[in-house]
Amino acid sequence: MDISAFLLFWAAVFTSNILLTNFLGMCSYLSVSKEVESSLGLGVAVTFVLVFTTALNWLAHHYILVPLNIVYLEYIVFIIVIAAFVQLLELIVERYAPALYYTLGIFLPLITVNCAIFGVSLFMVIRNYNFLQSIAFGAGSGLGWLLAILMLAGIRAKLKEKLIPAGLQGVGISLIVTGIMALAFVGFSGVAPIQ
């Protein structure tokens, strides 16, 4: 993949937003976006974890899986790396930054099952990014996800006072709002294509 890390970062935020074009991380996106504050907390946690797990998984892929010729174990290794990193992070944050633990800590267990984290690692392998590109892609994807969930949370806060058909309340209207957001993001697609 011949694209500068800097460009890739912005492309991951806007042109191929991990949520709005690749649909990753939908579950927690739909369930946590009821409040702006918790959305921000989860978004920051996702971004942080993404940067590190993408880097770790890149190292694991290129220095363990490929040399030992066990790439078919990729999924299991990636999942374990992510779960272990999140667990470790939880312990560290709880021990050294209790204040942060109370605001971000509750979101950490949610992250292990957030498919955006795992998906970014898989994309990184499929698209053959180098180390720097992978970190940029991880950071950009995280920021893009944060942007998407913040926008939805903001819009949902306004929607609370509006009249919405009963069958469409909750998830239905969130999906329609997300669709409109995705439509807006299609406008960025020519700026820096990465696929």
Partner: peptide, 27 residues
Amino acid sequence: IMAMAPSAFFLLALLIWIINKKYYKVG
């Protein structure tokens, strides 16, 4: 647009709406 991302969101929302209305009789 149907082959692109936004339509998937709209179609799933519509499906959930129709099922809520016709199958679960919400609203």
